[in-house]
Amino acid sequence: MNEISHRKARTIIAKTLAKGREMELKPLSVVVLDAGGHVKAFEREDGAAPGRFDIARGKAFGAVMLGMGGQAQMARAEQQAYFMAAVNGVYDGKVVPVPGGILVMGRKGEVIGAIGVTGDTSDNDQVAGVAGIEAAGFDAQP
């Protein structure tokens, strides 16, 4: 499988939100991007702040464009702040380099997209997102 179908994108979102409810997280927003950084699906739970789309998209966009999850991006930003600042310049400030941006991996280990989860702590966002990706039958790379 070399892409995320709309049905699988909706499954990722539903399972991510279910994990968030199970963990009693604050209201989440979840976006699924394809391998080209285009939005496949998005959902914002009741009570989530209206600006969460841009944060979720920034987490996912950075992951798919750089080929590294938000956890790895954050480590890179801490070690080489100038690099992430330059990357954000290249992408017009659209990269949010923190956990919650998670690569979706295909059966052969290829990047087929990314998700961005936001609403609670970045670490909790990541846990919920990984659960959603795995529940849809994909591997996650945070």
Rank of each mutant, 00 (worst) to 15 (best):
S5T: 15
K8P: 05
K8A: 15
R10T: 08
T16V: 12
L17V: 09
L17W: 01
L17T: 04
A18P: 01
K19R: 14
L25K: 09
P27G: 04
P27L: 03
P27E: 07
V39Q: 02
V39F: 00
V39I: 09
K40F: 05
F42A: 09
R44D: 03
G47P: 00
A49W: 07
A49H: 10
F53V: 06
A56I: 01
K59R: 11
F61T: 04
M65R: 13
G70I: 12
Q71R: 15
Q73G: 10
A75M: 06
R76D: 00
Q79N: 10
Q80D: 11
A81C: 02
Y82L: 08
Y82E: 12
F83S: 03
M84L: 14
G93C: 02
V98Y: 11
G101Q: 05
G101K: 03
G101V: 00
G101W: 01
I102Y: 05
L103V: 13
V104L: 14
M105L: 14
R107H: 14
I112L: 09
I112R: 12
G113A: 07
I115W: 00
I115L: 03
T118F: 02
D120P: 00
T121Q: 00
T121W: 02
D123K: 10
D123M: 06
D125T: 06
G129L: 09
G132V: 04
I133Y: 09
E134L: 07
A136F: 12
D139H: 14
